[in-house]
Amino acid sequence: MISTIKNLYEHDRRFRFAFIVIIGIIIFSSLSFFSPYDPDSSYDVPSDQSPSIKYFFGTSSRGQDIFWKMTFAIRNSLLFGISTALLSRIISILVGLTAGYKGGIGDRILMSINDSFIVIPILPLLILFNFIFQEKMSLFLLSLIMACLGWAWDARLIRSQVLSLKEREFTRTAVYSGMKSLPITLKEHLPFVMPIVFATMINNMLWSMGLEVSLAVLGLSDINTPTIGTTIYWANQHQALVAGVWWWIAAPIAISTLLFIGLYLLFASLNQYIDPRTRLLRMGG
């Protein structure tokens, strides 16, 4: 693990940049544990102060120190993105591998469910869920709902990969070695599927965090939990740009842009690193 990171850090510029940015952002978000202010309280500091030595990112019209507020917002957004991506990865791996390897009637049933999820329009559905749950809507519940909506494309991708792996001779070798289907799927096919899982993980994180911002800006998420989206929501509510408090919006946008670029580069370089072809070259094949 450590040697892998060292290897990548030394040989891949993209990784070096992404690594520094993401470590920075993680440190930044973990500062939230040392915050002098409660994330929910307001008017702890003078309002509408522009960025200065005392208040790095300035203060909001609600009298909150934006620096500390952002540590909570980034932490929550990151956790939200990661949990959505992980949960939906589990579903898509399960569905994709099973449908691909088993084939036949099971495949057809799974894929028709899968295709239904692909064509469902997600934004109206999320708005509907918000109306149903109203106050009970929490960030975790939203992440659960989005995980259930965001796996279908990737499951199809995994399935198609497994379908082609199934036709390769080494799968037949495994069958004639007396291996059962589950071990074949897990031991023979999963290593080839992992790059797809990693690649789609970044997409899914970016997608879910982006969608959360859209929902929050519309006021359709749990607006009392600080996230990137809700920070922008509150800034808009107080007409920060009109009032000239631009830093209230600039802070979440700047940090999220950095985060998104960092994540993208990180996964692009990891993806290349764990690609079976590169793996073979690394092993000296």
Binding site: R168, E169, F170, R172, T173, A174, Y176, S177, G178, M179, K187, E188, P191, F192, P276, R279, L280, G285
Partner: peptide
């Protein structure tokens, strides 16, 4: 009845050690 395939480079998973198939066969049968 056992098969032998055409392409020896494709017969084994390139990411796995070849002896794993021999052990698997011995144990599974």
């Amino acid at each position: 009845v056992q098969p032998i395939f055409q392409n020896p480079f494709e017969t084994f998973n390139p990411l796995k050690r070849v002896d794993t198939y021999l052990y698997a066969t011995a144990v599974n049968y």
